[in-house]
Every structure is written in structure tokens, then in C-alpha cells.
């Protein structure tokens, strides 16, 4: 093998390698990119209740700031309500994984109301929950009225379903985005 040929080959090979490196992009894996978060993450739901008679405001939270998996939820309130009362409820859905940039997901759900539904299912609690907002055809559930009866103890399950093209007014179809059981006391 002659030396000149070897040199020539090596030159070609190194040119090729250089081009290849340029194509492959000289990105450094240690540099933080623009977006590394999960756009779909929901960490928090907040139940705002106001007593229509007294005007008293109540807030109850579920918070799991690192999302699904990892650490256990940091806040999971027990709902305490007065008996024989009438409340107006607004539901807030948030992503608080980054304390400096809290995202309000409630708005996104409202925009996509034709594909979402929220269901409230009381169990052994004397409460009647009626959704007051709709997508035009079916209920949505970001706003509701809560009517309590006599003293009781149990749970209220709040379910948010994503039902792209499947919405039929029920909470059976689709993908579960939220499903939380809140301990509820009426006294």
C-alpha cells in the first residue's frame, strides 16, 4: 500500500467525518433545552365553594406537585360542609409543577368543552350536585351547585374525562384525566 494513497484516504475520511458531525448537529446533551415539561400535566385541583345564604367561601385542594408517581400528594383536603345548605361551586384545574409559572388548565378545558366532561359522584353523603354549565349539548361541569342534606359522612368522586369525538353526556367513555375521591363530612 503506498503512503500517498493512505494519506489521501485518511484526508477523505476525516472530511467525511467532519461533514457527518456537522449534519448530526453539534448539540450538547448537557444544555437545558427550551421545553422539557409535560404539557398535559395536572398537579392540582381546587374546589371553590360559596354558601349562597351566608356568602362564606371555602377552598379545598388536591395537590401532587411532582405529578404521577414520585412523591405522595402533598395536600388532599377533607371537604367539610354545613347541613341543609346551598353552595355555588367553581372548579379550578392547575399545573403547579413549576412554582414560578403556574398554568391554568381550566381555560384549556373550557376551550375544548365539546371533548371534556366532569362528573361528581357522592357516595353515602347527602349531597346533590348539579352541573350548571354546558358545551351547548351536554353538561361540562366546571361550575355546579351543591345542595347538602342531613349530617352524613362519605366521599365525593370528581372525574374529568377526555372524550375526543366520544362525548355523550356520560362519564363512561374516553380517557380519565382526573379521578379523585374526597372525604366529605356534612355537619
Amino acid at each position: 500500500m503506498n503512503k500517498q494513497f493512505l494519506l489521501k484516504t485518511l484526508t477523505y475520511l476525516s472530511c467525511f467525518a467532519a461533514i457527518a458531525y456537522a449534519i448530526s448537529g453539534c448539540t450538547d446533551p448537557s444544555i437545558l433545552p427550551v421545553q422539557t415539561n409535560d404539557k398535559e400535566l395536572i398537579t392540582t385541583i381546587k374546589i371553590d365553594l360559596s354558601d349562597t345564604l351566608t356568602g362564606k367561601k371555602l377552598n379545598y385542594f388536591f395537590r401532587d406537585l411532582d405529578g404521577i408517581g414520585g412523591k405522595a400528594p402533598s395536600q388532599w383536603d377533607t371537604i367539610t360542609l354545613e347541613d341543609s345548605s346551598y353552595y355555588r361551586m367553581n372548579l379550578k384545574i392547575l399545573n403547579e409543577s413549576n412554582a414560578n409559572a403556574v398554568e391554568d388548565i381550566t381555560q384549556e378545558i373550557y376551550v375544548e368543552r365539546a371533548n371534556h366532561i366532569i362528573c361528581y359522584t357522592p357516595l353515602t353523603v347527602n349531597a346533590i350536585i348539579n352541573r350548571t354549565d354546558t358545551d351547548g349539548t351536554y353538561p361540562l361541569g366546571l361550575a355546579a351547585t351543591w345542595k347538602t342534606g342531613s349530617n352524613s359522612l362519605g366521599e365525593i368522586t370528581i372525574t374529568l374525562k377526555h372524550q375526543p369525538g366520544l362525548k355523550n353526556g356520560g362519564c363512561n367513555a374516553g380517557e380519565t384525566d382526573i379521578e379523585i375521591k374526597f372525604w366529605t363530612v356534612i355537619k
Binding site: 446533551p29 448537557s30 433545552p33 427550551v34 421545553q35 422539557t36 409535560d38 404539557k39 400535566l41
Partner: peptide
């Protein structure tokens, strides 16, 4: 090298 954008599955 591996670089990702979006939700986490595998680190860079």
C-alpha cells in the same frame, strides 16, 4: 448522544 424535548422518559 440523545436529546429530548417534551415529557420525560429518557434523560439526555
Amino acid at each position: 448522544t440523545n436529546i429530548y424535548t417534551g415529557r420525560f422518559f429518557i434523560p439526555n
